[in-house]
Design a protein around this nucleic acid. Structure first.
Lengths: 216, 216
DNA sequence: GTCATCATGTAAGCCGTTACATGATTGC
DNA sequence: GCAATCATGTAACGGCTTACATGATGAC
């Protein structure tokens, strides 16, 4: 799941570890403050699996040979301009770039069936849903909907008990409400997908994103 | 956290492992389907720590010597009536009862500060909040409220970005909404606590939260 | 020069999972 | 007798955490 998040962020530009952590927190909003003890091993794993390549900032690197440098992200370019031609410091930023294999892995992870009651994993997948085909998006949403429906049955069973004290009652009711709202959210997303899949009506939508398929 | 749940259920009567799992699922509503691979080791751990004592159903046991048998739960009694005087079968139900040490541990775990963003742990604690003093209850709720307020700041930061695609946007918005509702829930619980702590006014409040002082 | 912050990493451990192995009870 | 369910356990592993160790950079 962390791998998925990392690869997703790397799809939009090269980043170093510390920055990935920051984005996980306040760009994605999910996974508040992942720990370095998870992050760096994950990056190392992904690198040795060939899904990403790390380049030591400020050195001639396997990634940035000759003219290829031009394609580096603005952030890295800025970094380069600040410390021109310092040769290989012992320890420095290590900027990661996703590879073709990484993109393939990303797609695979993104469409993979979520195991169990994984709310965070699901939200993460939706966050990156623009990279899915409409069909896979719908099936992702529907799979989750089924899970939540099951969960709702469970909590409703619990909610029907009449021997709960006020606190347990309050928890059960609040949980039920939360699950219901999650389902409503999914239904809204599914509706939007359906809307988007039949863009052939004459001016059905004067207000905005008329038939915008997946605008950024 | 599992320990807390087990001890909490055991406070209301003796249970065997399988049954504990069932109750976790559809009595508490939280922790849907905890696995046996967690549950039994946890029970063993608690037993060797002296927090619970397990009695082999259908045998003369350290718990049920002589007249003490009468205090066993209805379930166990029913079991006994079905299989009178079968001596020590190899493998049978093992019913657990909480000890004084266990009750102490329970209270300790229940009031302990929750580490990080632990929604499930918090809900579990609220479920057992009737075992807390009013003061500890309030401090539990307020600690959580502070956490959620911080979380809200984070997701609001993310929500202010305008470069999110419709899916990421939807996730962030839904997350924000969820956190807000959790906070509202806590406020309702805190109001109820305050209400309960001054039961000496003559009908002061026909409508509801009249002068609720802790609103945002 | 030193302090805060940025940045990378390792080690130990916790808390849970799946998969597997086994035995007891009940209904047909 | 056999299958389904109830019931207890073990082994291996996964993913994330905290605590620790280290180094680079920039501000003052």
């Amino acid at each position: 799941m962390l791998d998925l998040a990392i690869l997703g962020l790397l799809q939009e530009g090269d980043l170093h570890g510390y920055e990935i952590r920051r984005r996980l927190r306040d760009s994605l909003g999910l996974m508040a403050n992942i720990s370095f003890g998870s992050l760096y091993p994950a990056l190392a794993r992904l690198e040795s699996a060939g899904a990403v390549r790390g380049i030591e900032a400020g050195t001639a690197s396997p990634l940035a040979t000759g003219a290829a440098m031009g394609s580096l992200s603005g952030e890295l370019a800025a970094l380069r301009s600040k410390r021109t031609a310092i040769a290989r410091p012992k320890k420095s930023k290590k900027v990661y770039r996703i590879t073709d294999a990484g993109r393939a892995l990303f797609t695979e992870l993104l469409a993979a069936p979520a195991t169990s009651d994984d709310a965070r994993g699901f939200s993460l997948r939706v966050s990156f849903a623009k990279y899915l085909t409409p069909e896979l998006r719908v099936s992702l949403l529907q799979r989750r909907r089924t899970q939540l429906q099951d969960r709702l049955s469970e909590v409703c069973t619990a909610a029907q008990r009449n021997d709960l004290d006020i606190y347990a009652r309050s928890v059960v009711d609040h949980t039920t409400q939360g699950v219901r709202q999650d389902i409503a959210w999914l239904d809204a997303l599914l509706d939007a997908e359906r809307e988007r899949s039949r863009p052939d009506l004459t001016h059905p939508n004067p207000g905005g994103q008329t038939m915008a398929p997946v605008n950024d």
